[in-house]
């Protein structure tokens, strides 16, 4: 444990040092330049799984995890011969998936969770908060009304917390375009072409207006862009994705910090605060790195065959059960 604290202390001390050595490029009006298309797709999950003893693991262990990840993807494409198993039509094959191939590494050390606080790398739900998050999730599985399904299934915003804030990875489309103008930082979220229009030193929206991605106001602290967000849409509750999931409420407060730490890196850390469901604020960090290409259109609602399929399938199931029962 002492070693763990030392390591954490080292990391905390080491980060600003990296930032100091590097002079971020500037926009013509002087703000640090964060522009470009970035990704934060990693195999490292938001929460630390029980099999990992600490925040970091050795390079050998990290490569093992990466190999397992690659095998998992490859196996998805190996469908059995003949008819599919009854009741399971399968999902995407691997060509549609892009969850990241590598674990997150910060200062060369592979991370086992994005969460750095609390130290156990787990979401600090209160008993009540944990219960609420399970209830919301189960309600979505009831498939009674479109408004109760996951926001991603409804094409309202992307899956999980891809648009955030905080912005977390999902199974694919983990790309973001940053554009800056005097007074604004605009972030295009690839999944569902959600746009985060961050007003620098702006005033908060009236309390009655609760956008899907909350209301974000930013300012520069030195070379770090600090963005505070709250007033989330009341239906934005459980942000469900495969590797990164957590619950939030309308009043959840998120503070994000973006720092350009290299030509190919934006350090991204965030703190999530909500006393109604968490026993303490939790914090996480990751690195945005340059994406391989431009972002193309992700039109979701226009081709949403899944939502009527989910609801219609459930109605059909009920009809069969009724006629059989």
């Amino acid at each position: 444990m002492t070693y763990f604290f030392k390591l954490l202390g080292f990391l905390v001390l080491a980060l600003p040092a990296v930032a100091e050595d590097y002079a971020a490029p500037r926009m013509p009006w002087g703000d640090p330049d964060l522009q470009g298309v970035w990704t934060h797709a990693y195999l490292t999950a938001l929460e630390r799984q029980a099999l990992f003893p600490s925040l970091t693991i050795s390079e050998d262990q990290a490569r093992n995890v990466e190999r397992m990840g690659a095998d998992l993807l490859a196996n998805i494409d190996k469908l059995p011969e003949g008819d599919l198993v009854k009741g399971d039509v399968g999902g995407y094959n691997s060509v549609w998936m892009d969850p990241g191939k590598k674990m997150l590494r910060i200062d060369g050390k592979a991370r086992t969770s994005l969460i750095i606080e609390p130290e156990n790398g787990r979401l600090p739900y209160t008993a009540e908060g944990g219960k609420k998050s399970r209830e919301v999730y189960m309600k979505a599985r009831a498939r009674n009304n479109p408004e109760q399904l996951m926001l991603g299934d409804r094409c309202m915003v992307g899956f999980g917390s891809t648009g955030g804030p905080p912005m977390l990875g999902v199974l694919y489309n983990n790309n973001y375009q940053f554009v800056q103008t005097p007074g604004y930082v605009m972030i295009l979220v690839e999944m569902n072409h959600s746009v985060r229009t961050i007003r620098l030193k702006g005033e908060r929206l009236p309390a009655d207006i609760k956008p899907w991605l909350g209301d974000s106001v930013g300012h520069w602290e030195g070379d770090t862009l600090v963005v505070e967000t709250t007033q989330f849409h009341p239906q934005k509750l459980f942000r469900a994705a495969i590797a990164h999931r957590f619950m939030s409420t309308t009043d959840t407060k998120v503070v994000e910090r973006f720092t350009r730490t290299g030509a190919a890196a934006i350090h991204y850390e965030y703190t999530v605060e909500d006393a109604s469901i968490y026993s303490q604020p939790w914090s996480a960090e990751t690195i945005f790195r340059p994406s391989e290409g431009p972002i193309y259109e992700y039109a979701c609602h226009e081709g949403n065959y899944s939502l009527p399929g989910i609801l219609g399938g459930q109605r059909e199931k009920e009809r069969i059960e009724k006629s059989e029962g």
Binding site: P28, V179, T181, M186, L188
Partner: peptide, 8 residues
């Protein structure tokens, strides 16, 4: 959103 490197 407009600057010399981006137009959105």
């Amino acid at each position: 959103f407009h600057n010399d490197e981006a137009l959105f």
